[in-house]
Design a protein around this nucleic acid. Structure first.
Ligand SMILES: [Zn+2]
Ligand SMILES: [Zn+2]
Length: 772
DNA sequence: AGCACGCCGACT
DNA sequence: GTCGGCGTGCTC
């Protein structure tokens, strides 16, 4: 054995899994050193200690960012705690305290530490991810860090208000008198608004200030992303029987003031939103606040409008379309308790909202609640953790709940609330499954063509759904049989006819058309597999007079393009809409009476244990698009091999049966919610590093198998030991129980022991665990 | 993340 | 000989 490493000069370095003592001991002469413990936003698990210099001791407080020397650079760091000590090892000094007010509370820190441990992500990076981007100062390498408190600019405006002075003592010009009267009768008013009412009035205001009749102040203004949307007040709607029962259960739980998580299972149009609104109203009345998480695509002005109509003021909206400045403004309003309701996409889980009484997660099954890079958190999962910490009600709402949620409800860990009825509307659509082999020449079966034709004649609208964009999913060489693949991702390139290119849907690698075979150089390439672009093309040939539109990420990349297509469908300007899963989400089309699903099993055989669940959810959603108006709906599902239970159960709307069969499948293979899953993804810079990792990971896997894992698995096509995807190599580890301590130990040991260190970067992806 | 240090192959 | 690329480890 080699001699142990040199003794490290810094003792007692705290790792971020342990709680740090943040309670400070008062400074006195016997304890002259103030030592700050700090997390940095880098790939480092331990924390660092700095000396707080004399000049900063009076300003130090919890929850602030610091500017510290780190190596030969200067970076932003996050203060975790500080203490006074008799003596100190030689430490570097903090350069600056970047915030006057705390950015996070002790409670927030508990939550963030939990996240750090659960997602195996350094605390400093978690803090960075949780804070709004506008606040962050770019680390400066040069010595002059002037203006370092920077971040996004705080906007100010001038406001005027009357003084106590005796107003009758002056004889004023008419305009001045009018302004003064106005100010006496109203709250302080900005110059901008006064200008609107009285025209250019800078001179008049200046005069009134000089006379001591009014005073000028500055106040911070917030950039308002939803300004200009007028609000018509509405009042709580009368609930149907099921809704009132559900609401009563929620209110009961809320009044217990204990952590009360619910699964609210209600099909689209069953009146979930009204239940949310009234539950939130109850929480607000008793003085607590509400956090509402919705998928990015559902976070529309229309939704915000609904909340504004009910609650008017005190609503903050956080979505990805905000500029850093706007987002920072909303964040500050929340921090200062100026709002009672926060509505946002996944990152809103980090909103600095205090006293949370209820967390609503709408469409909880949506994958967009999961962040797929950096800190790979799932806001749906975190809502449960936060709700537990805050003793809040957590409402997970969905028409097609996650298998995990459904299971937790069965176990009694989630309260199960069901809204079975469509409010004021029709029965479920009649659904037929057709067995067809889809070919590039005839992607649409004769039966579906006939139905579309009938629908056109009746003047009714149709949807055609295919979960694959592009013209053809790959090009195959007629000479040697090789398909055109992405050199980075080893997946077939999708041919896009309009753009005359073949494109990798993972990394956006492109080759122009006509293409040359990578292996033999032939230019004789055959189109294989069908995408939405081709379906649109074929439909135009079959129905030359029909008004046809396509909606997928290719046709909606422009700003407003998405809304434009939706509007056209809604106003009846479109007869047939072709699209990917995009047409399954978003708004209702009351005029649609026929839905055709092409290649329904398309997403079923992906190397993902949730493939069946995703397929079922998607199909259920698409099926639900038919017959939402007054006319009954009809659905035709085309599949090559329709025997899979995900298709069968979706077709006959048998939710119970789907969950039963899916849970059997999960249990047999120890997939969540029965097993615990962690994916380690590698990206390597060289082929040799890759091989080394492959070998060492095989060793890891066999070690895991022989120790505590009940089942370990490598995801992907055999016989490759590591699955290559999006330029990365992925192995997945499944554990039977949810013992994170054991997992962390094994992972840490593996990562430390791995042969190639920096040539390989791994990200650890923790998948759903039973958090209840 | 950067940055320095050390090891090994290639090259004026 | 030494120049430089890459792999490794450290930063209070
Ligand atoms: Zn070829
Ligand atoms: Zn690619």
């Amino acid at each position: 054995m080699k001699e142990a490493k040199l003794k490290r000069p810094f003792a007692d370095t705290v790792t971020n899994t342990e709680a740090t003592h943040t309670q400070s001991i008062q400074s006195d002469d016997s304890r002259p050193f103030c030592i700050a413990e700090v997390a940095v936003p880098l790939d480092i698990d331990n924390t660092f200690s700095y000396l707080v210099p004399e000049r900063l001791i009076d300003n130090i407080k919890h929850g602030v960012r610091l500017f510290v020397p780190f190596g030969r650079r200067k970076i932003t760091a996050y203060l975790l705690g500080y203490r006074f000590a008799k003596e100190s090892e030689p430490l570097k000094e903090i350069l600056e305290i970047l915030d006057d007010e705390p950015l996070w509370t002790e409670k927030d820190l508990v939550f963030l530490r939990w996240i750090s441990g659960y997602y195996l992500h350094p605390l400093g990076k978690v803090l960075k991810a949780a804070l709004p981007n506008g606040i962050n100062v770019q680390s400066r390498t040069n010595a002059e860090g002037e203006g370092v408190t920077g971040g996004k600019k705080v906007l100010r405006e001038k406001v005027f208000s009357p003084t106590e002075a005796d107003r009758s003592a002056f004889k004023l010009k008419e305009k001045n008198q009018n302004i003064l009267n106005f100010l006496c009768q109203n709250a302080e008013t900005s110059q901008k608004e006064l200008r609107k009412m009285f025209g250019e009035c800078g001179q008049n205001l200046k005069r009134l200030v000089e006379l001591g009749l009014i005073q000028k102040n500055e106040r911070e203004v917030y950039r308002d992303p939803f300004a200009g949307y007028s609000v018509t007040k509405d009042s709580p709607k009368l609930l149907m029987q099921h809704q009132s029962e559900v609401l009563a259960a929620i209110i009961d739980a809320a009044d217990s003031r204990t952590f009360s998580p619910f699964l609210l299972h209600g099909i689209t149009g069953s009146g979930k939103t009204e239940v949310y609104l009234q539950a939130i109203s109850h929480i607000l009345e008793r003085g607590d606040n509400a956090l509402v998480l919705v998928p990015e695509i559902s976070l529309t002005p229309l939704l915000v409008q609904r909340f504004r109509a009910r609650f008017q003021e005190g609503i903050a909206v956080l979505h990805s379309g905000l500029s850093d400045g706007e987002r920072y403004d909303e964040w500050r309003r929340i921090r200062r308790s100026e709002v009672r309701i926060v509505i946002g996409a996944r990152s809103a889980i980090f909103a600095p909202l205090q006293q949370i009484g209820i967390i609503v997660v709408d469409e909880e099954h949506e994958t967009s609640f999961k962040q797929s890079e950096g800190l790979r958190y799932n806001a749906r999962d975190l809502s449960l953790v936060l709700g537990r910490q805050e003793n809040a009600v957590v409402l997970l709402g969905s028409a097609t709940p996650l298998v995990t949620s459904r299971f937790a409800a069965q176990q009694g860990k989630l309260g199960y609330l069901h809204l079975p009825l469509r409010v004021g509307s029709s029965s479920l659509p009649e659904t037929t499954v057709i067995t067809t082999k889809m070919t590039p020449e005839t992607p649409i079966s004769a039966t579906l063509i006939q139905s579309l034709s009938d629908n056109l004649e009746r003047g009714e609208q149709s949807l055609v759904f295919l979960n694959r964009r592009g013209f053809s999913s790959c090009l195959i060489c007629n000479d040697c049989g090789a398909d055109l693949q992405c050199p980075n991702c080893s997946v077939s390139l999708t041919y896009h006819r309009q753009r005359l290119k073949s494109i990798c849907h993972y990394c956006d690698y492109q080759v122009p058309f006509p293409s040359v075979c990578h292996s033999c150089g032939s230019t004789d390439m055959k189109e294989m597999g069908v995408g939405t672009e081709r379906v649109e093309h074929e439909l135009r040939t079959i129905f030359p007079k029909a008004r046809i539109a396509r909606m997928d990420s290719d046709t909606t990349c422009g700003k407003g393009a998405h809304a434009l297509i939706l509007n056209k469908v809604e106003s009846g300007e479109i007869d047939i809409l072709v699209g990917t899963q995009m047409i399954a989400k978003g708004h209702d089309f009351p005029g649609v009476t026929l839905v055709g699903v092409l290649q329904a099993e398309g997403s079923l055989y992906l190397p993902d244990f949730r493939a069946a669940e995703r397929t079922f959810q998607l199909l259920s959603q698409v099926i639900g698009r038919a017959g939402r108006g007054y006319l009954p709906g009809r659905v035709l599902i085309q599949a090559m091999n329709p025997g899979h239970y995900a298709l069968e159960t979706a077709a006959c709307h048998d939710f119970e049966d789907f969950y039963k069969q899916e849970l059997e499948f999960r249990q047999e293979l120890n997939y969540p919610p029965f097993g615990f899953l962690v994916a380690i993804k590698f990206s390597a810079t060289s082929e040799s590093a890759l091989i080394a990792v492959s070998e060492s990971s095989a060793k890891l896997l066999s070690a895991l198998k022989s120790s505590l894992m009940l089942r370990t698995e490598i995801l992907g096509p055999a016989p490759a030991p590591i699955y290559r995807m999006r330029g990365r190599f992925r192995i997945q580890i499944l554990l039977k129980d949810t013992n994170r301590v054991a997992l962390r130990k094994i992972l840490t040991a593996y990562l430390a022991d791995r042969p190639v260190q920096s040539a390989v970067r791994e990200t650890v992806d923790v998948d759903p665990v039973d958090l209840l």
